Computed example of a mutant assay.
Amino acid sequence: MIRTVAAALIATAAMTVAGSAAAATSGTIKLNGKVDLACSVSVQDLNQQLNLAGGDSNKAVGKVTETCNSGNGYRISISSQNGGKLRGERGTEIGYQVNYDNQGGTLGSAMNVDRAGARFGQQYDLKVSVQGSDQYIAGAYEDTLTVTIAAK
């Protein structure tokens, strides 16, 4: 009899445990994910020849495509290898101005354009203006512009 009562108690306890496991009506699953910071700039050189004798005004010399997913925004910097001057073969120089997204000036130091938020595939023209003169020294003149992007 004691064995029968003990067996009944064990069977009742087992059913109670099994019943409480089956009694759950909901559960949760936590989902996680991450988006890495990604900023890129693509620069297309339009291979333009500037008219130094006659001058050029806001001539598009390149197309820049900006992409950055920073919620805090990002900065585009444009710098000149020759400090904002076209340098000639004999060391002579001709100054010029740049215009990018309606911001302009000389490039004695880097020009910065700040963006307030993320942008994807935004394209802008990089334009150059140069004062014409028939008194420039003959020869080829050049400079190299560098465009960089950095998240804030």
Results as ranks from 00 to 15, higher is better:
104 G>S: 01
109 S>H: 12
103 Q>I: 09
108 G>I: 09
109 S>G: 14
88 G>R: 01
94 I>F: 00
113 V>F: 09
90 R>E: 12
108 G>K: 11
110 A>K: 10
88 G>A: 04
110 A>T: 10
93 E>H: 12
89 E>K: 14
104 G>M: 02
116 A>T: 14
88 G>N: 00
105 G>I: 04
106 T>N: 01
105 G>T: 02
106 T>P: 04
98 V>W: 00
99 N>R: 02
91 G>E: 05
110 A>F: 00
113 V>E: 09
91 G>C: 06
92 T>D: 15
99 N>T: 01
98 V>A: 06
114 D>K: 14
99 N>F: 07
85 K>A: 04
111 M>V: 04
99 N>I: 01
95 G>T: 07
102 N>G: 14
100 Y>V: 03
95 G>W: 05
113 V>T: 12
97 Q>K: 15
95 G>I: 00
85 K>F: 07
85 K>C: 00
95 G>S: 10
101 D>E: 09
112 N>E: 15
85 K>V: 10
97 Q>M: 13
113 V>Q: 10
99 N>M: 07
93 E>A: 11
86 L>K: 06
115 R>Q: 13
117 G>R: 15
89 E>T: 15
107 L>Q: 02
108 G>E: 14
92 T>M: 10
115 R>C: 08
97 Q>D: 14
88 G>I: 05
93 E>K: 12
108 G>P: 01
102 N>V: 10
90 R>H: 13
98 V>T: 06
91 G>S: 09
86 L>T: 03
115 R>W: 09
110 A>L: 05
96 Y>P: 02
95 G>F: 02
115 R>S: 11
116 A>K: 13
108 G>A: 12
112 N>Y: 11
98 V>K: 00
116 A>E: 15
115 R>G: 13
98 V>S: 03
88 G>K: 02
85 K>Q: 12
109 S>P: 06
93 E>Q: 14
88 G>D: 03
93 E>T: 15
93 E>L: 08
101 D>C: 01
103 Q>V: 12
117 G>H: 14
86 L>M: 04
106 T>Q: 07
85 K>E: 10
117 G>M: 11
85 K>I: 04
109 S>C: 06
96 Y>H: 03
109 S>D: 13
116 A>M: 13
116 A>N: 13
90 R>A: 14
93 E>V: 11
112 N>R: 13
101 D>Q: 04
99 N>Y: 01
117 G>F: 12
95 G>P: 06
108 G>M: 06
94 I>L: 02
117 G>L: 12
100 Y>K: 04
112 N>I: 07
100 Y>E: 02
115 R>K: 15
93 E>D: 09
89 E>F: 07
99 N>A: 08
111 M>A: 11
111 M>N: 04
103 Q>S: 11
109 S>I: 10
112 N>D: 15
99 N>Q: 01
89 E>M: 13
104 G>Y: 02
101 D>K: 10
109 S>R: 14
115 R>A: 08
86 L>P: 00
87 R>I: 04
89 E>S: 15
98 V>I: 04
116 A>C: 08
103 Q>P: 06
92 T>F: 09
90 R>M: 11
108 G>V: 08
107 L>G: 03
110 A>H: 03
